[in-house]
C-alpha cells in the first residue's frame, strides 16, 4: 500500500481526496435525513356507533303495523276491481240491444225506396215514345242539310289540303335550308377551332423555342459576364476564405453599370469594396444583341464567394 502511494503519489492523493469527499458526502447527507425520520406515520381513525335496544323494538312494531295496513289496502283494492267488472258487463249488454234496434229501422227504409223507383220507371217509358216520333221527322231534314253541307265541306277541305301541302313544302324547304346553314356553320366553326388550335400549338412551340433560345442566351451571357467580373476582381490579400458578399448591379442597355449596391455585406469593408470595384470595373458587361433580351439583364445580383 505504501509502495503504491510512493509509486503513484498523484493518483494516491487523488484517490484519498476522492474518498474523503465521499465520506464527507455521506455524513452530510445523513445529518440531513434525520429530522425526516422523526415524523410519526398517520394513525387510521375508527368511528364507533352505540346501538339502543328500545329503538330496535319500536322499529319492529313499526314494521308490523305497516304490514297490517298493507293487507287491508290490498283487500279494498280487490273489491273495487270486482265492482268495476260488473258495471262493465252491464254496459256491454245495453250496447247490443241498441244495435239490434237500429238494424230493424234500416230494413224498413230500403222497402220504401224500392216502391218509389218502380213508379218513376213507368212514367219514363211514356215520355220516351213521344220523343222518338218527333225525332224521326227532324232526322230526315237533318240528313238533307247534312248532305249539302258535306259537299261544301269537301270543297273547302280540298282547298285547305292544297294550301297545307304548299305550306308544308315551304316549311320543309326552309328547314332544309336552315339545316344546311347550320351544318355549314358547325363545319366552319370546327375548322376555325381546328385552325386556332393548330395556330396555338405552333405559337406554343415557337414561344417554347424562344424561351429556350432566351434561356440559352441568358446562360451563355451569364457566363461571359461572370468571366468579365472575375477578371476584374482583385481579391484583397489575406484570409478571405469564408467571406461572401452580394451586390445588386443595375445596367442600362449596352451593358453599362449605372449602380452598384451591396445588399449583403461580408462584414469586411475591404472585401466589400473589392467586390463593388470589380463590378464597376467590369462595366460595360457583355449583353446579347437582341434588345428584347435586355429585361433578363436589367438587374443582376452578384454573389461573391471566393474559392466557391
Amino acid at each position: 500500500m505504501l509502495d503504491l502511494v510512493k509509486k503513484h503519489p498523484l493518483a494516491s492523493l487523488l484517490s484519498l481526496v476522492l474518498h474523503l469527499v465521499l465520506i464527507g458526502f455521506f455524513i452530510f447527507s445523513t445529518s440531513f435525513n434525520e429530522p425526516e425520520s422523526l415524523i410519526a406515520p398517520p394513525v387510521p381513525i375508527v368511528k364507533a356507533t352505540v346501538i339502543d335496544d328500545s329503538k330496535i323494538k319500536a322499529e319492529a312494531e313499526k314494521l308490523k303495523n305497516h304490514e297490517r295496513e298493507k293487507q287491508q289496502q290490498e283487500k279494498k283494492r280487490l273489491d273495487d276491481l270486482k265492482n268495476k267488472r260488473l258495471a262493465e258487463e252491464k254496459k256491454l249488454a245495453d250496447l247490443k240491444k241498441k244495435q239490434a234496434l237500429e238494424q230493424q229501422k234500416l230494413e224498413q227504409q230500403k222497402a220504401e225506396q224500392a216502391a218509389s223507383a218502380a213508379k218513376i220507371k213507368k212514367q219514363q217509358a211514356i215520355d220516351e215514345k213521344k220523343k222518338t216520333d218527333a225525332a224521326k221527322q227532324q232526322l230526315i231534314a237533318k240528313e238533307k242539310a247534312a248532305k249539302e253541307k258535306a259537299i261544301k265541306e269537301r270543297a273547302a277541305e280540298e282547298k285547305l289540303a292544297k294550301e297545307k301541302a304548299a305550306k308544308e313544302k315551304a316549311v320543309k324547304e326552309k328547314l332544309a335550308k336552315e339545316k344546311a346553314a347550320k351544318e355549314k356553320l358547325v363545319k366552319e366553326k370546327a375548322a376555325k377551332e381546328q385552325a386556332a388550335r393548330e395556330r396555338a400549338l405552333s405559337e406554343l412551340a415557337e414561344q417554347e423555342e424562344q424561351e429556350m433560345r432566351a434561356q440559352e442566351a441568358v446562360a451563355s451571357y451569364s457566363g461571359l459576364i461572370r468571366q468579365k467580373v472575375e477578371r476584374n476582381w482583385l481579391q484583397p490579400p489575406g484570409d478571405i476564405a469564408g467571406l461572401s458578399c452580394t451586390v445588386r448591379v443595375r445596367l442600362i442597355p449596352g451593358g453599362d453599370v449605372i449602380d452598384v449596391q451591396v445588399i449583403k455585406s461580408s462584414g469586411n469593408t475591404y472585401f466589400d469594396r473589392s467586390v463593388e470595384l470589380a463590378t464597376r470595373k467590369a462595366s460595360p458587361l457583355p449583353l446579347p444583341n437582341d434588345p428584347a433580351m435586355f429585361n433578363y439583364f436589367r438587374t443582376l445580383d452578384f454573389y461573391f464567394r471566393p474559392g466557391g
Binding site: 417554347e208 482583385l234 470589380a278 433578363y296 443582376l300 464567394r305
Partner: peptide
C-alpha cells in the same frame, strides 16, 4: 408543353427580377 411553358415563364419571371451570378474566382494581383 403547357407545363414546360409555365416553367419557362416562371423562370423568366424570376430572371427579370434579378439574374443571379456567382463569382468564385478573382485575380490576386496588386
Amino acid at each position: 408543353k403547357l407545363v414546360l411553358m409555365c416553367m419557362l415563364m416562371y423562370a423568366s419571371a424570376a430572371w427579370s427580377e434579378a439574374l443571379k451570378i456567382e463569382i468564385t474566382q478573382g485575380v490576386s494581383s496588386a
